[in-house]
Write a protein that binds this DNA or RNA. Structure first.
Lengths: 97, 97
DNA sequence: GACATATTTGCACAATTAAACAAATATGTG
DNA sequence: CACATATTTGTTTAATTGTGCAAATATGTC
């Protein structure tokens, strides 16, 4: 898996509307949230939200922690932000790609 | 089309490996390039490259100009970079989403 | 006009994907 | 143990998507 493939995976994960909505929802949360809470932001079945969150977790976009019967999700803020900024820099030509 | 939907479209367009390769290829180009030249970076048919470039153009990622029988592609560097940085800021919580 | 080159478009196909629903699993509570 | 809640997993379906190939279009050159 090359860095470029990994980046494509990250962007692809973010590039689906419901998943991006989940990310934005987590943006606004001061504290980590469980899946049922996040479920409300996109009008889809809980199982769908579960799968979307798994994709986000697999791509390192969110961090999951088990807490009782819940899963607590937290946005990997700096990590994701830095990857996006790196791409922005490469695209703008600030840094060689 | 909400801003969030537009952003999802942008990320989706960037999140396909061959399209991201085209973008990186354009990153390295000091001058705009035609499709045949760009075609070489991903090992796909010319028609496929044509379609990918159209998607990138529709999303405002690249700018196209007709020049004779060629189409000259140029990366919308600052525009795309700024959108990515805005998302990065929102994710990091620097700016309210 | 004949021909070469660049690009797009129509079509078919295989693979992926998002979604819903039901059933299964896991965990907490009475 | 019985039951409620949270989440995941299996299955199916419909839609989208990436690809290749052939044909069409557009433009330049002889």
């Amino acid at each position: 898996m090359t860095p470029q493939q990994e980046l494509a995976g990250l962007l692809k994960a973010l590039g689906e509307y419901n998943r991006l909505s989940l990310v934005y929802q987590l943006c606004d949360c001061k504290s980590p949230q469980n899946a049922m809470c996040l479920c409300e932001c996109c009008s889809v079945d809980a199982s769908v939200t579960s799968r979307h969150l798994k994709i986000l977790a697999d791509e390192g976009i969110v961090h999951v922690e088990k807490k009782g019967r819940e899963r607590i999700y937290e946005l990997n803020r700096t990590e994701v932000a830095n990857k996006l900024r790196k791409l922005a820099d490469e695209i703008e030509g600030v840094v060689p790609a």
